[in-house]
Computed example of a mutant assay.
Amino acid sequence: MTPAHGPDTAGSSLLSSVVEFRGGSAMIPASRDVVHGFVARLAERDVDLADTFPDAARLVASELVTNAVRHAPGPCRLELTLVGDAVEIAVSDTGDAFPTFLPRDPLRIGRHGLEIVTRLCGEVITKPNATGKTVSARLPLT
């Protein structure tokens, strides 16, 4: 699975990557590769990162893209943006239903993605857009 277009830097002071995925489950591991490249760019710019940041960022992106694959038809867009002392990880998809936070249930198998993202990022924000919705979370760098 290859993205429709590759990472893009939005400006010299703003570090971001945007990738449009065409669809399918291959978007999930591909999203982790995009995050890996973005983290490398952060390191090149000497951005101070916690040792746990790369794995946490890959997990958050992977969980958000997984939700897009499971609950929305068609393509999705992954955007990573350095915002102050955090990275905003946003996934836009074509689904119009907002994510559902299930009650905590340690016996439930699976469907813990939003719990994981919320635990790592503090909150998950969903906004409607012209073609569906965007789900985003900010992961602290340190």
Score class of each variant (00 low, 15 high):
residue 101 F to D: 11
residue 106 P to G: 09
residue 105 D to N: 14
residue 125 I to Q: 08
residue 29 P to Q: 02
residue 49 L to W: 03
residue 133 K to E: 09
residue 95 G to P: 01
residue 117 V to A: 07
residue 78 L to E: 01
residue 72 A to I: 03
residue 41 R to G: 05
residue 122 G to V: 13
residue 137 A to C: 09
residue 6 G to F: 15
residue 39 V to P: 03
residue 31 S to V: 04
residue 110 G to V: 03
residue 43 A to L: 13
residue 20 E to K: 10
residue 142 T to F: 08
residue 51 D to S: 15
residue 131 T to I: 09
residue 9 T to F: 12
residue 125 I to E: 09
residue 9 T to D: 10
residue 110 G to F: 06
residue 116 I to Q: 05
residue 42 L to D: 11
residue 18 V to P: 00
residue 21 F to A: 00
residue 74 G to L: 06
residue 115 E to H: 14
residue 64 L to N: 00
residue 63 E to I: 02
residue 37 G to R: 10
residue 84 G to W: 03
residue 123 E to Q: 13
residue 44 E to Q: 15
residue 92 S to Y: 01
residue 104 R to V: 07
residue 8 D to Y: 13
residue 129 N to Q: 11
residue 3 P to E: 03
residue 104 R to K: 09
residue 121 C to N: 04
residue 4 A to T: 15
residue 17 S to V: 12
residue 37 G to E: 11
residue 75 P to H: 11
residue 63 E to W: 05
residue 30 A to L: 02
residue 12 S to R: 15
residue 66 T to W: 00
residue 22 R to I: 07
residue 35 V to Y: 03
residue 98 F to D: 13
residue 89 I to V: 13
residue 116 I to M: 07
residue 16 S to F: 03
residue 86 A to T: 00
residue 80 L to Q: 00
residue 88 E to G: 02
residue 136 S to C: 03
residue 121 C to G: 06
residue 9 T to G: 12
residue 102 L to I: 01
residue 102 L to M: 03
residue 18 V to Q: 15
residue 115 E to R: 02
residue 71 H to E: 06
residue 54 P to R: 02
residue 125 I to G: 00
residue 9 T to I: 09
residue 32 R to V: 08
residue 79 E to A: 06
residue 35 V to G: 02
residue 22 R to E: 08
residue 134 T to E: 15
residue 133 K to V: 09
residue 84 G to M: 04
residue 75 P to R: 15
residue 142 T to E: 15
residue 13 S to T: 11
